[in-house]
């Protein structure tokens, strides 16, 4: 079998999960080397703060505001973030139960691919959750209010926010940890809540807010004329439209065109991700629209699209 001299093993990894650090300190770029190939997974030793320089870009004010979020970090964001956490705790049973139930047993610690790849302990699911749990304990539990050190509670501070922004953006919400947790604690629920809290105080992720913000703007404005807009208005250009038959029953058009949400390239080029694309296609088809952006595709044209799809 493959040993450590196999070509696979020596291929250096191009720091996939590490966007460039802030321009101010280019010298401190995180150095992440993929572990050598091995037949059986081994649990990496901890490398404290190995991903601490992986700071995603913060969204610009315009992009935040397009989505109805504050443009920049608001005054008194600490209190507002804690209040937002309280709101989410009342909306999501998952979050409330998961904040309480963890016993730090460690079953999840070696289950996250971000941890396996980087060795950064804050990429262990339990530690990622604890970034929020420590704040939850501080403000929403009695022991955290009385004895913060004892239960590992911490105030909502700039350092905590920075860690949230780093490490919650290093979670792909794959939910692998929830498979292994004896209580089914799902880090994705915590990550989503943290991102919602950060958005609500004006600290969004550039590539999330920008893409969604542009989609929101597009929906509010009339669509600019495009080449070929006359004859084929509202219809995907020939050759680019892909059709998919779902079990030979429902013909569905996949949203190949640039859409409001923006699809990951993997949706188009990789297996099984393309199944997601087929999934959107089915949903849009069932809803009677040909793409995820209904105002661009008024009803009559859509029916034309659908009939064109079925007739061919």
């Amino acid at each position: 079998m493959a040993d450590e001299t196999t070509p696979v093993a020596v291929a250096p990894a191009p720091t996939p999960a590490a966007p460039k650090p802030a321009a101010a300190k280019p010298a401190e770029k995180a150095k992440v080397v993929a572990p050598p190939y091995r037949d059986y997974p081994t649990i990496p030793a901890l490398k404290i703060d190995s991903m601490v320089e992986s700071n995603p870009y913060v969204a610009a004010a315009a992009h935040n505001e397009a989505l109805g979020f504050p443009g920049t970090l608001v005054d008194g964001w600490e209190q507002k973030a804690v209040a937002k956490m309280g709101e989410l705790l009342g909306k999501y049973r998952s979050l409330r139960v998961y904040m309480d139930a963890c016993v730090h047993c460690g079953a999840c610690t070696d289950k996250c691919h971000y941890f396996i790849g980087t060795g950064d302990p804050k990429n262990m699911p339990v530690a990622r959750q604890d970034l929020m749990r420590s704040v939850y304990r501080r403000y929403y539990t009695l022991p955290g209010k009385l004895f913060p050190k004892l239960v590992g509670a911490s105030d909502m501070t700039q350092d905590v926010l920075d860690d949230w922004f780093r490490y919650y953006n290093q979670c792909s919400e794959c939910r692998r940890c929830s498979v292994f947790c004896p209580y089914g604690i799902d880090t994705a629920e915590v990550t989503m809540a943290a991102k919602e809290i950060m958005d609500s105080v004006g600290h969004g992720h550039k590539y999330v807010e920008r893409d969604h913000g542009q989609g929101a703007q597009d929906r509010q404005q009339p669509r600019p004329a495009r080449p070929g807009a006359g004859k084929h208005a509202g219809r995907p250009r020939r050759g680019r439209a892909r059709r998919h038959r779902c079990g030979g029953q429902v013909p569905a058009r996949c949203p190949w065109r640039r859409s409001a949400a923006g699809h990951p390239s993997a949706d188009f080029f990789a297996e099984p991700h393309v199944d997601s694309l087929i999934g959107y296609g089915k949903v849009f088809h069932a809803a009677g629209i040909s793409g995820p952006c209904p105002r661009r595709h008024p009803k009559p044209e859509i029916s034309a699209c659908s009939s064109a799809t079925t007739s061919r």
Partner: peptide, 16 residues
């Protein structure tokens, strides 16, 4: 008020 809440909590875990 502690992590012993995992006992009732497991019954309310939506993933389970």
């Amino acid at each position: 008020v502690s992590k012993l809440l995992h006992a009732p909590g497991v019954f309310f875990s939506p993933t389970r």
